[in-house]
Design a protein around this nucleic acid. Structure first.
Lengths: 117, 117
DNA sequence: CGGTATATATCGGTGAACGTAGCATGCGTG
DNA sequence: CACGCATGCTACGTTCACCGATATATACCG
């Protein structure tokens, strides 16, 4: 599961939303770093419905335009929880390794073993 | 950047490693959930070298086998830090939304506020 | 009357990941 | 000594998600 898909599930975790609403929420969650395109959005939603991580909650017609609401299933919530935990673990691993890294070598002596006097 | 690529950078953040060593460390970091295949590993390393997030530290021949060590560049460390922060933010967003979700529908009462009589 | 915002749908290209196979060497086992 | 196994990189081909572009349709505003 990639970033866009993960964020779509995250957006739906707060409650049912229609496609466009998901796209807006994803932009918000990611602080503008991820903007879903139509192709990505509906492609991912179709896939998620097929995998039963998401279901169509209901459809309504507003101003002559179709509006389809999607809802996270229990399986989807489980999958999201699992992936969120994994993401956090990986982020923590990366951050702790970066901290321990001798990056005082930024630009000058590059001495991975600290053997440099 | 996808999960395998992120984990490769993370493995290299602790110090230079050769391809096979990276693969082993990735298995460890991900607690066995991600196992890098040769195609994924060397493909990603080639891309990372081209993007200058990783450089070839040195090469040696051990027992007639080539061993090529890769090292994280400063640009690579910066990129990894940025991505790690983003990953953590997304993981947190997902987890907080999942907590707030009315998942008492899942068969057990989960009442964080004790409001449920 | 044209531009923008709301909404969903589809198509083709691209690139990362993935699987498998192959090459090459040393080491332990039968 | 033959064999499998671990090490370590290369070289294919395939799959799949993402993405840009395009299409459709309505409402609102200048």
């Amino acid at each position: 599961m990639q970033e866009p898909t993960f964020l779509i599930l995250t957006a739906l975790a707060a409650g049912p939303k229609h496609g466009y609403g998901v796209a807006q929420e994803v932009t918000e969650i990611s602080e503008g770093t991820v903007t879903l395109r139509a192709g990505t959005l509906y492609g991912a939603l179709d896939r998620l419905v097929e995998q039963e991580f998401v279901t169509v909650d209901r459809q309504e017609v507003v101003n002559g335009r179709l509006r389809r609401y999607y809802r996270l299933t229990d399986a989807g919530a489980g999958r999201l929880a699992e992936r969120a935990r994994r993401l956090r673990k990986h982020a923590e691993a990366a951050e702790s390794r970066l901290e321990a890294r001798p990056n005082w070598a930024l630009g000058f002596t590059d001495d991975p073993f600290g053997a440099c006097a």
